[in-house]
């Protein structure tokens, strides 16, 4: 097991390296000059040149690459030209916001898709099943940005129920930063109103992500459940005199978990890519917005860092799944043990 995990870990590192190399060169293929952005209107050519030198942009590409990779090996993600800080410092500040949004969305998604799938799978082809299918299908066809803007228009502009963006009510004072997760920080500060404010700001971005994930997730979970329901062990369970509830929750669900987990891993991947859009739409101060704004001024270190961080997230999730599979299904032997 340990051996296997080490091997997987090594793979993960290799993948990350590849991503770093690819994004580095991709970012340099686009000819743009972040130094001109820093220098601003009416700056002289000499000023621009000075800034280029300051950030090492005047050096040959291979030299830039080597120094970037050397930095990376020491955990240095480079310098952001836009924020004039180290990317690691920025990430430490922006990452909790993204993680909070992702975790909240994902938790809601898991519970919702699971409940819907279980409800639908109870009587496949029935009215409830059909209604759920129709509802979730609506979510698939809608592009994330459109959905986000529509929700914003509806709940902020028309109904005045929910705020327009960001993480916390504007005029209120946010709880002191302890973890960077506002839900936790609000609780640590013992402030129910701060918690409510946080949740209100989370609602729309999270809803946007959940609705988009839900369609595919529910369908996959439902299919997995229905397939498991036709297995022979279900007949055995009935033959013992077990009720439908025990059969579903103890027998079927546990078996359906593996395919559902596989689907969930993929969904997590989609979510990482959507989170950028959602953060931009809702001014959510996470790494997505950070990278997007950096990208706009051709400040590439944050963009490469985002690629690395999200790949690392994906690698980590996969690693977690590799650990989880054998626990969920004893037939799955972890490779190498």
């Amino acid at each position: 097991m340990v051996n296997f995990l080490l091997k997987r870990f090594a793979w993960g590192i290799l993948v990350l390296l590849l991503v770093a190399v690819i994004t580095f060169f991709l970012s340099r293929v686009v000819p743009a000059d972040p130094a001109a952005f820093l220098a601003g209107q009416n700056a002289s050519e000499a000023t621009v040149q000075k800034i280029r030198a300051e950030y090492g942009l005047d050096r040959p590409l291979t030299e830039q690459f080597v120094s970037y990779m050397v930095g990376l090996s020491k955990g240095d993600l480079g310098q952001s030209i836009r924020t004039r800080r180290s990317v690691s410092t920025d990430l430490a500040q922006y990452l909790p916001a993204t993680l909070e949004l992702l975790l909240v969305s994902f938790t809601i998604y898991l519970i919702a898709s699971f409940s819907l799938a279980v409800t639908a799978a109870r009587h496949p082809g029935g009215f409830v099943d059909g209604a759920i299918r129709l509802l979730t299908m609506v979510g698939t066809g809608i592009p994330v940005f459109w959905l986000g803007m529509a929700l914003q228009f509806m709940f902020f502009y028309k109904l005045h129920w929910l705020p327009i963006g960001a993480r916390f009510p504007i005029r209120e004072t946010a709880p002191p930063v302890v973890t960077g997760f506002l839900i936790i920080d609000s609780m640590l500060a013992g402030s129910p109103s701060a918690l409510l404010g946080t949740l209100k700001h989370l609602a729309l971005p999270a809803l946007t992500i959940v609705i988009n994930l839900l369609a595919v997730g529910t369908r996959l979970s439902r299919a997995a459940l229905i397939q498991e329901q036709s297995r022979l062990y279900v007949r055995t369970a009935r033959g013992k005199g077990l009720g439908p509830r025990v059969i579903l929750y103890k027998h079927v669900l546990r078996n359906a978990l593996s395919p559902i987990l596989t689907a969930t891993t993929m969904q997590f991947g989609y979510m990482i890519s959507w989170v950028i859009l959602v953060e931009v739409i809702f001014d959510w101060p996470g790494i997505g917005l950070y990278a997007y704004q950096s990208f706009q001024v051709f400040d590439y270190s944050p963009v490469i860092a985002l690629a690395i961080v999200s790949t690392a997230g994906f690698v980590l999730i996969n690693l977690l799944m590799d650990i989880l599979y054998p626990i969920i299904d004893p037939r799955v032997q972890s490779v190498g043990s």
Binding site: M149, Q152, F153, F156, Y157, H160, P163, I164, G165, A166, I170, R171, V280, I281, D283, L289, Q293
Partner: peptide, 21 residues
């Protein structure tokens, strides 16, 4: 004074109209 960063023009307009800004 809170100098709020709202990158999207439509959001600035809506927020102003809605009283958020």
């Amino acid at each position: 004074v809170l100098d709020r960063f709202v990158t999207d023009g439509a959001n600035r307009a809506r927020g102003l109209e809605g009283g958020e800004f």
